[in-house]
Structure formats: C-alpha cells, structure tokens
Simulated scan of single mutants.
Amino acid sequence: MSVVLAASAAVLALTAAPAAAHVEVKADKAQAGAADVTVTFTAEAESSKAGIASVKVALPAGIAPADVTWVSGPPGWALTADADGYTVTGPALAVKQDAGYAVKIAKLPADATDLAFKTLVTYTDGKVDRWIDAAGTDNPAPVLKLAAAAPGTATSSAAPSPAATSAAAAVTTTTAPVTTPGDAANDEADSSATPWVVLAVVVVVGLAAVLFFRWRRRGESGGPA
C-alpha cells in the first residue's frame, strides 16, 4: 500500500511541476555592466512535424536592438533588428533540430540582476512556441542571471556632467539685443528734436485759428476787421 501511495505522489508531483524552459541562454560574461558580451541561445525543437523557421526575441530593458550583432548560428541564418528586439531566420531547420545561435551585446545594463529574453519560436507549419512568461510557469522566458556590476561601473541613469549642464544652459539662455553707438546717437537726436516739432505744430495751428477768426469777423461786418 505504501508503495502505491508513494508512486501516486510522485506522479502528482511530476504532473504539477511546470515545464522546464525550452529556450536556454548563457553568456561568456554574465555580469551587470559587462561590455562585448557573447550570449548564446538554444531553442529546443518541440514539433514532431515541422522544423524551426525563425526565432524572435524581445530584448529586456536597457538593451537596444542596435546593441546586438550576429555572431554565429545555423548555416544561412542571419539577424534582423526589430522595433523591440531582433529576429534570426534562414533556411528552415530539420524536424527535431534545435536552433542554436549566438549574438554579441555591446553592454549589459549595470543595474540589472537578471535579464529575461522573451522568445517566439516559429515553425514551418505556422505553429509558434511562446516562451514569454515569468519563471515557474508553463512557458517561461529564458532568463540570464547576472553577477553584480564591478565597483565604479556607470549606470544608464547617471546624471549629466556639470560641463554638459552648463552647455545646455548656455544654449537656452536668452541674450539681450545689442545696441550700437550709432543707434544710441540717433535715438538721442530724435528725442531732442521732438519738442521743436511739437512747438512748430502748435504755432501753425494758432496762426490758422487767428486767420480764421479774422476772416469770419470781416465777413460779418462787411469790411476790414
């Protein structure tokens, strides 16, 4: 009886356990902040009817598609950058043949402890294996564990240098308009001439008024004013 119970418990444990990751990842320098890191992936072939046609990867935060370059892979395969990662593809692989390839990443994030590379494996019959979920689930994404960054490694969120800050301030500073000596002299001359112009206008208006009233009185009296 005890043997039967033990066997039943073992079967239940195996049934309840999540599936192992079917895309493996490793790196030659698995350390936060490391540069020129060669990362190797192995996507296991899950289909018994079709071969792997392509592998698409969504890069984790802190790594841009432009930071990834092709190193090696199946004959005829190549890497193409996408908006959020890259795709490796080429002649379809044979049924049950794993897709193993390597890329080089310019620099790993300095403040990361692990990196999840969500992966889609597409087969020639259109079937897609989606290894994009969290660890411990049925479809976990491959995760690269990282050692802590070396002391003094700069992070991507570092504050700008004082020189850069000063330069930015200089660009955005508004300068006052420059007045030349000639402009100042012209402004002064215009200011000094203004009272004389006003006086001339007043005199002309006054003379016109006097002449008007004299003409009017002359007309009313029928003779000289």
Rank of each mutant, 00 (worst) to 15 (best):
A116L: 02
T38L: 14
K127A: 09
L211R: 06
G136V: 07
K104M: 09
Y86C: 07
D125M: 08
R218A: 13
P195K: 02
D114L: 09
I63D: 02
A184K: 14
G152I: 00
V11H: 12
V3T: 14
T42Y: 09
G152Q: 03
K127C: 01
A50T: 04
P75N: 13
L79S: 01
T175S: 15
D114E: 13
A20G: 10
G85C: 03
A159W: 05
V143E: 10
A32Y: 00
S157F: 11
K104A: 03
V201T: 14
A99P: 03
G100W: 09
D67H: 14
A50H: 01
E24C: 08
G136F: 05
G100F: 03
R130D: 09
V143G: 05
A50F: 05
V71Y: 14
V210D: 08
A35P: 01
A83P: 00
A208I: 12
M1R: 13
D82G: 11
P142W: 05
T42Q: 13
S192D: 08
L211E: 12
A209W: 08
E44N: 07
S8L: 15
A167C: 07
S72R: 15
D67Y: 06
K104I: 06
K145I: 04
A168F: 08
T38Y: 01
A150S: 11
D133W: 03
V202T: 13
E46P: 00
A53R: 15
A209M: 10
L12I: 08
A102M: 11
A20C: 03
G182Y: 10
A176D: 10
A30Y: 02
V143L: 10
W196Y: 13
A159E: 14
Y123V: 04
P195S: 10
W215A: 14
V57E: 00
K145R: 05
A168H: 04
G62F: 07
W215T: 12
P109L: 13
A158R: 04
T80G: 13
A13V: 15
K49E: 08
T122M: 06
P65G: 11
A92S: 14
S166T: 10
R130P: 02
P177G: 04
H22Y: 06
D28E: 10
P181T: 15
P160Q: 06
A200E: 04
Q97L: 04
V55D: 13
A159M: 09
L79D: 01
D82A: 11
G223W: 00
W77L: 11
P160H: 03
A20F: 08
V68Q: 07
A53N: 11
V128G: 04
T40F: 08
T113N: 11
L115F: 01
